[in-house]
Design a protein around this nucleic acid. Sequence first.
DNA 1: TGGGGTATCATGGGTTTTCATGGGTGTCAA
DNA 2: TTGACACCCATGAAAACCCATGATACCCCA
Lengths: 161, 161
Amino acid sequence: MTIFVGTHVNKVDRKGRVSVPADFRALLGSPANFFAFPSFVHHGIECLTGSIMDSLSETVHGLDLFSDEQDNLADLIFASSYTLGIDGDGRVVLPASLRIHAGIEGQSAFVGKGKTFQIWEPLDHDQFQTQARERARADRLALRQRPQGSGPTPDAMENGT
Amino acid sequence: MTIFVGTHVNKVDRKGRVSVPADFRALLGSPANFFAFPSFVHHGIECLTGSIMDSLSETVHGLDLFSDEQDNLADLIFASSYTLGIDGDGRVVLPASLRIHAGIEGQSAFVGKGKTFQIWEPLDHDQFQTQARERARADRLALRQRPQGSGPTPDAMENGT
DNA sequence: TGGGGTATCATGGGTTTTCATGGGTGTCAA
DNA sequence: TTGACACCCATGAAAACCCATGATACCCCA
């Protein structure tokens, strides 16, 4: 397995600990940790592996040094990031500021996004996904990205989940 | 070359297990698993090989990082996906949410789609296929602009190429 | 060409291992 | 001293694994 997939809802205990899904742990590998920072577009928490974080820093530094854009991005991403270490039982402690950003209390959802993943308050993510589905339906471009070749006309058998 | 063909109906047992057709297993190869997610447009379950999923993730990540478009697509595809591992006996466990989406209870139909395949509730798929056939026939009639008594019975879809 | 034998496959059930989760103890720093 | 944090262990539930069996398709040989 090479990518993060699925939506895993796990409990957040009294100490702020939460189990990282076993699938995800396997992908994260040996330096058992990852980077997390609040998304600047929604209530989720962006989670990146070390290597993705590295390439992201390359990208950001490719921008004009000292430019406003560079400064903003660097601040949004790096300054507000945490390194979350996974303990011997496969859990991490969610820092309070991240929990507050996401509105997480008793439960959290680990959401696979391919090369990255996110952490959400479960109901919040349900809502986000519903919206994403509606947007995709309205947006032909999104549908064109589907792996299926020439399928039947999509409007024959509509249904959601 | 990996081409999934045919329609194979297998039982789903009490534990939610179902045998993956031997043909399909042979095509899936050594990392004996595949990715499955509910279709956006019908009641079937879309099934993709790891390599197709990988290239899909490349495509999605080629979009602007943290853009709405990227985030939406990644959520629809990856967040609702499951990695289904094939056990030593050639079976997978269908997660409850996928079974519910497809309306699967006692039986499931593995439907070859070329480079991908789908899983359906058998009767549902029959119906879908009938409709697809009627649409195809209607399109041809429209193109030819001539009436036709009893249409030809296209009996493909049941054999190899 | 037909019959018997064999390999493959789908399916059912039992058992072991993994995983998520709760709680306790020790350590370090403010 | 107190609070935060990292480590250790225990446990119930769920998933993965192992084995057995009936049926079917395939092959070989007479």
